[in-house]
Write a protein that binds this DNA or RNA. Structure first.
Length: 460
RNA sequence: GGCCUCAUCGUCUAGUCUGGUCUAGGACACACGGUUCUCAUCCGUGGAACUCGGGUUCAAAUCCCGAUGAGGCCA
């Protein structure tokens, strides 16, 4: 069978992590089977759909490297197709116009719930040829609707509980369940892989496929991505847009890798996978049934792993956008060295400015910070003076980490911290930072001496 | 409320289909220790889970039933 999958987001919000994960699984499955993966924008809800959201979805998928085949399909461009199918259904008496008002329907629903019935509307106006009102499916199916879910096995529904479900607001305004069925069939989607929240839509869609004589796709319902409180991931759990992760300085490959492992695993102990490896290994029967919490901490770890693996030049390019404070041209040349120092310390690129600001401007810190263990001011000052005198003798081309380390350690006492801690703080102004030799190599001789002097001055 | 889905360390999960090799494995996080000052990296050590109750069986995390819990959809 020719494998063809799709992701069908509505442009009513930014690209959601849940949507991205579904897209990812569809992509992985299609590519694993040398099939196609397409993007269909479900923009029939004119009120809520916006072009900027479509742009965001497109940008987000591209950023993640979830590439679709062919052109983007938009439901708004397929209205004629829906109309044709709707007319057929109407003509064959399988659909009808429902004259009931929203108020009447609400009333009916209320009664049903009160009497512990499943809320549904089975219309008493099925036979009438009205020509306006909501178009509904005439549902008089009696036999159980069954389908085999690739992840969950056989699932059954009682069709009587569905009622005469709605298909369209009018001939040119199709509703979700109807449009999806027409699209998936006419676009020859072989596998519908989507979130678990769509399981309950499936029987309606199957009934429609049967009524229209359309090919039924293979269904696979993915477990949901959950927030900390185990409910479906949503805005109140914090960042849910892929764009937010980009802005925080997560690398697309890291997010890609992390999302792939949410609800799926290869059955081996490896955790870091390239896109290629994931395509090669992905299989639908290793997908979980249970929902998975989006664990930010683990994402951070994985992102750190990817940052460390990244070639320095590329990392520098990616990092440039994260500095809010102005960096002069002369400072730009040391950016590469600075980032090299921070590379093993980073979890995400947004940490960069705060971690590296002291390379670009004079540090501000409390004199207390210069003190290591029980040192008094005099010993701190002595240490700094020693450091300065060593530095003054170093030739400009001797300002390398290796050379400085050799010179300083030769002069350091038994407790190296007495020399190294005050020196490091004088240079960085920070409690946590790279080592003093690395910093001096980047800063250069003059600037290093300047900062040591500033520290000595603070002690007076 | 009705229907549907799910259930192993705090979290992601392996193991479940094809019962024994599981005194339940890995990773993240956490704690402790090591790696020429701090942090990070790297390395090591540790604590930490089969939701509960029945049943089947010589044997159940694994099969069956029930309960409970969690989630989803429907308005």
């Amino acid at each position: 069978m020719r494998v063809k999958t799709r992701i069908a987001p509505s442009p009513t919000g930014y690209l959601h992590v849940g949507t991205a994960r579904t897209a990812l699984f569809n992509y992985l499955f299609a590519k694993h089977n040398s099939g196609e993966f397409i993007l269909r924008i479900e923009d029939t809800d004119i009120e809520r759909s916006e072009a900027k959201f479509e742009d965001d979805i497109v940008a987000g998928l591209k950023w993640l490297g979830i590439n679709w085949d062919g052109e983007i399909t938009r439901q708004s461009e397929r209205i004629d197709i829906y109309e044709t199918y709707l007319k057929t259904l109407l003509a064959d008496g399988m659909a009808f116009y429902c004259p009931h008002s929203q108020a009447e329907l609400d009333e009916e629903r209320k009664k049903q719930v009160a009497n512990k019935f499943s809320p549904q509307h089975t219309c008493d106006a099925r036979g009438k040829k009205l020509g306006k009102g909501l178009i509904r499916f005439k549902n008089d199916t009696e036999k159980t609707v069954k389908f085999k879910d690739e992840i969950r096995g056989e699932i059954e529904f009682d069709p009587a509980l569905l009622g005469d479900f709605s298909l369209a607001k009018d001939l040119r305004t199709p509703l979700y369940n109807f449009a999806v069925v027409v699209d998936d069939a006419t676009m020859e989607i072989s596998h519908v892989i989507r979130g678990e929240d769509h399981i309950s839509n499936t029987p309606k869609q199957i009934l429609l496929e049967e009524a229209l004589g359309l090919q039924q796709p293979i269904f696979a319902h993915l477990p949901l991505i959950l927030g900390k409180d185990r409910s479906k991931l949503s805005k109140r759990h914090g960042a849910t847009s892929v764009i937010d992760y980009k802005n925080e300085g997560y690398l697309p490959d890291a997010l890609f890798n992390f999302m792939a492992l949410l609800g799926w695993n290869p059955g081996r102990e490896q955790e870091i996978f390239s896109k290629k490896e994931l395509i090669k290994e992905f299989s639908i029967d290793r997908v979980q049934g249970a929902g998975a919490i989006f664990d930010m901490t683990k994402l951070d770890w994985m992102n750190g792993e990817y940052i460390r693996k990244k070639p320095l030049k590329e990392l520098v390019e990616l990092s440039k956008g994260f500095f809010q404070f102005p960096i002069s041209n002369s400072q730009f040349s040391m950016l590469e060295k600075v980032i090299a120092l921070e590379q093993p310390r980073l979890k995400k690129l947004s940490e960069l400015p705060e971690k590296t600001d002291s390379f670009f401007k004079e540090p501000e810190y409390d004199a207390e910070l210069l003190k290591w263990k029980q040192m008094d001011n005099l010993t701190i000052k002595n240490s700094l003076e020693t450091a300065k005198s060593i530095l003054q003798l170093v030739a400009e081309n001797g300002m390398t980490k290796e050379n400085l380390e050799k010179l300083f350690l030769a002069k350091a006492g038994k407790d190296r911290g007495e020399l190294l801690w005050p020196l490091r703080v004088a240079l960085s102004g920070k409690k946590f930072s790279p080592g003093p030799f690395e910093i001096m190599e980047v800063l250069g001789k003059d600037k290093s001496i300047l900062r040591i002097n500033a520290a000595i001055f603070m002690l007076k």
